[in-house]
Design a binder for these strands. Structure first.
Length: 273
DNA sequence: CACGAGACCTGTTCGC
DNA sequence: TGCGAACAGGTCTCGT
């Protein structure tokens, strides 16, 4: 599920609460229950449960696709990978099918990490660098300038699609938003990154930001049974629109496989390299 | 260095 | 209706 806009939306909901669910900001963690051992990356189960007890959730933010919880002493990091979600529930509700990690908070509230495919992970660390240190820049960060972006594209010669999916190149993009950004920028997913002109690099950065901002405004994209809440899926231009007309020129959207990921593009607007 | 395949997992959808 | 195959928002590791 979650790419940058969905993780951003979840962070905001946890911070602000919703009409039906309270904010968890400022609450103390009374204890944690790990239901699937591999959902915890580090430290050990014993250290985790003993260290987290009593800490207060002082801030909630996002870095790339990671949720970042500033606790009294440590950092709690959560990566939702393909099917993870974070839910707030009243204490005493039955454990649900794919619950992997449950935090009991003060005020009869639980924070629940639910993850059908078990790919998601949580970390409790004292320093962020070990987990987040290899992430590239945030695409929405204004400090990332078009000429920097151009330089980064020309620092290697990789196909644009796998490069934009590489979290060390840019943090937060996933399969949906890479396809959508390349479409908006009229760039073919297989184009070598060092063949992009300065103008195209600027267009790609602008397109990426436009797609991400639109998706955040719509609370992200909900697909199938996994993530609910957003409606950006109704505004996809190419993703999962194979065979349907390109919104710009009417040419049927094509689907190829790149790095084992389904890749959608307009063969007319995004000419082959 | 760049790319592809396989692994980690479960659930849904599609074709026969 | 049943059943196997293909596919799914991500990332890591290994081999070439």
């Amino acid at each position: 599920m979650p790419e940058l806009p969905e993780v951003e939306t979840i962070a905001r909901l946890l911070r602000q609460g919703t009409p039906s669910q309270p904010s968890i900001l400022g609450r103390q963690i009374l204890g944690a229950c790990l239901l699937w051992a591999r959902s915890l990356a580090e430290p050990s189960r014993e250290e985790f449960t003993s260290h987290i007890k009593g800490q207060v959730i002082n801030a909630i933010s996002r870095r790339g696709k990671f949720l970042v919880f500033r606790l009294s002493r440590d950092w709690l990091l959560v990566h939702l990978r393909m099917s993870g979600d974070l839910l707030v529930r009243p204490t005493g509700m039955p454990v649900e099918q794919h619950d992997r990690l449950i935090f009991d908070l003060e005020g009869n509230t639980q924070l629940v990490f639910n993850d059908a495919r078990k790919f998601g992970r949580a970390w409790l660390v004292q320093k962020l660098d070990g987990v987040l240190g290899n992430l590239g820049p945030e695409p929405l960060d204004r400090d990332l300038r078009a000429d920097d972006f151009y330089q980064r594209l020309h620092a290697c010669r990789r196909q644009l699609k796998p490069l934009l999916l590489d979290q060390a190149f840019l943090a937060g993009l996933g399969n949906i938003y890479v396809d959508e950004a390349l479409y908006l920028a009229c760039l073919h997913p297989l184009r070598p990154s060092n063949q992009v002109t300065p103008q195209q690099a600027g267009q790609l950065l602008d397109a990426t930001r436009t797609v991400l901002r639109d998706a955040i405004t719509r609370n992200g994209a909900s697909i199938d049974w996994v993530y609910r809440g957003g409606d950006f899926q109704n505004y996809f231009r190419v993703y999962q629109r194979t065979g349907q007309p390109c919104p710009r020129c009417g040419t049927p959207i094509a689907r190829i496989t790149v790095g084992q990921r389904g890749t959608h593009f307009c063969p007319h607007c995004q000419p082959a390299p």
